[in-house]
Design a protein around this nucleic acid. Structure first.
Lengths: 139, 139
DNA sequence: GGTTAATTGTGGGTAATAGTGGTTTGAAAA
DNA sequence: TTTTCAAACCACTATTACCCACAATTAACC
């Protein structure tokens, strides 16, 4: 289970340190894809396999755009000895990664966000929305 | 069942002692999350698992912000030999934890409050509100 | 009720790990 | 052969986890 919020910076080589806590859950090799809301999603090999099977099970006639988006925008990466990964240029552009980057745990996957964008996105969540949701969840 | 009210202080390393009475009910490893009213909620592994399943069952289209907030705002912690846990910086900020901290039992979970904030919050509860609630509950 | 023992809580030091910047190496292209 | 780029490697710093010693509180016993 991947949880937590970590801030790191993108160096001039396009590397981002991946928090040790998240690496534990993702394994030694993982897949980065384009996600919703201009963030990048990171899956362990196992989780990606599950996802891939589901996507392939969809009828081509209906989902070929989606398939292209997901597969073309995917990259598998291996962290270096220090735990950093290189984010391919196209994914960096997609997520608007600049300097400060947030890496967050989201249960079954991790996500990579530009910091500014992450803060914006968090700001959109109101107390009322939270209260309502928590009622429903039985918090 | 978690009950009681305990005052502890946050040391300069960000550690808070977790009362032995509450540790008994929570197990040797537990999850701290952002809760309503700027407090932190603490769940046992079992209780958290139930919550996690519920959160993941929410529709992605409508509540992915909320999902991110809940997972990113969570941390799993293991008390040290003396029974203390380190509260991550982002959670300390969220709850405005400064020096004096209250740890309270709340049935199925525990909560961590900044002391000032806790006292304020308690002050907002009037006798009338309580009386009404007790009527409804048939106390 | 007072004394002792055990448990709980607090502060701080040290060793291990994680994170950052930069350099070298090796492969591919010119 | 030279140049360029990217990936692997190395060294340093910062942070975190772990451990020890002591203080305070609680429980047990005479």
């Amino acid at each position: 289970m991947l949880i937590g919020e970590y801030q790191h910076s993108l160096d001039e080589k396009g590397r981002v340190n991946f928090p040790a806590k998240l690496r534990e859950g993702l394994g030694s090799r993982f897949i980065i894809t384009k996600g919703l809301d201009k963030c990048l999603c990171v899956y362990s090999e196992d989780e990606w396999q599950i996802l891939e099977d589901k996507i392939r099970a969809l009828p081509v006639s209906k989902s070929r755009q989606l398939q292209r988006f997901l597969f073309a925008g995917a990259a598998d990466v291996v962290p270096d000895k220090q735990g950093r990964v290189v984010i391919p240029q196209n994914l960096r552009d997609y997520a608007g990664l600049d300097k400060e980057v947030m890496v967050i745990g989201a249960s079954v996957r991790a996500e990579i966000w530009d910091k500014e964008h992450w803060l914006e996105s968090c700001g959109e969540l109101t107390a009322d929305m939270m209260a309502e949701a928590m009622d429903n969840l039985g918090f």
